[in-house]
Design a protein around this nucleic acid. Structure first.
Lengths: 181, 181
DNA sequence: ACAGGCATGTAAATAGTTACATGATTCG
DNA sequence: CGAATCATGTAACTATTTACATGCCTGT
């Protein structure tokens, strides 16, 4: 039985304690969204599938009259998750519209390419600031991995913003020094 | 008329000279694939649409008996491309299965998390080597942007490989120095 | 009372991959 | 001749987003 990556995101998110679909979405948005997003349109149908496959188990946990189901991982689910975690990672996709625009910017004026770089830098600085804010507020000691991947996000965005700045300077720099040592 | 990002990739690829669908695919694979991929299943239908919209123009250019159509950008196509290039970039998605696995690796032994980091590092080193090979062979002087984004790919993969190495060391390091100044 | 957040779900559309089918050309 | 590459395209599938619909609960 082949599971999608989204299925494993869900299994991972319920592996420590039972969560509702809504909570899973919030957790994803607050942690892994920068390298793996998930929408309600995926989460709810996937929870149903995982439940039918016996990898998670739904338990009614209403808040007053508002119905609510939290899902807990089962033995089989934990085995599936661990099996997946042990396989070497494969998919790596990056879609960066900024780099794509830059690639084709030879048809524009240099100043316009520089503007794209500035927009990219601003965006990366914003994301970096958001991630730093998350880093500052958390105080969990037991699991080293979430802060580790958070750090990756911060470093990556810092590097990227810096790259944009350097490339902008290079673009707007005087052309004469091409072959200098 | 809204165009997909893939449409703009195609417009960009035919903006300097007329190309066939097959050539476009090869060009994409040799340049932007690391941050924006495209498959035949997207390229050929999209070329038809762009042709109907008058943004590219197909010209028969057979090789012997083998039929072949190259597409050239039109005035309208160039305007559409430039308009898009001038808008600030928005979409940025990254899907890194490795970071996702790492995030959930608290349920495994530290050595297993380290193994994921090693696999990630190896992969990034490989991609970096490929990009460096591309960088070494090219000798175009006129357009500064392709080498610029290539450099981004090289630097990114170098940073990422280095991060993996550092995190692996941190994971396997002795725990005792938690609160040192 | 009302806004905002909690909560669940579906429908429709778009995006994208994979696999397949077909056939010509070139190089060894 | 056979393999690799050039070349075009489609069908089926999977993934994913967006928008919508519904309704309760909490704080002001």
């Amino acid at each position: 039985m082949e599971l999608s990556s989204t299925a494993y995101v869900i299994l991972g998110m319920v592996s420590r304690e039972a969560r509702s679909g809504y909570e899973i979405k919030a957790l994803v948005d607050g942690s892994v969204r920068f390298f793996w997003a998930a929408s309600y349109g995926q989460i709810y149908p996937e929870l149903k599938k995982l439940s039918e496959a016996g990898l998670v188990e739904g338990v009614d946990a209403p808040t007053g009259d508002r119905k609510r189901t939290v899902y807990a991982i089962t033995e089989a689910g934990e085995e599936a998750l661990k099996g997946w975690l042990r396989e070497p990672p494969e998919t790596l996709e990056m879609r960066e519209e900024g780099l794509l625009k830059l690639f084709f910017s030879g048809v524009l004026e240099p100043e316009e390419g520089a503007a794209t770089l500035r927009a990219m830098r601003r965006q990366r600085e914003q994301i970096g600031a958001q991630l730093r804010a998350i880093e500052a507020e958390k105080g969990e000691i037991d699991d080293p991995y979430p802060p580790m991947v958070l750090r990756a996000g911060i470093e990556f965005n810092t590097w990227f913003a810096d790259w944009c700045e350097r490339m902008e300077a290079q673009l707007l720099a005087p052309q004469h020094e091409r072959g200098s040592s």
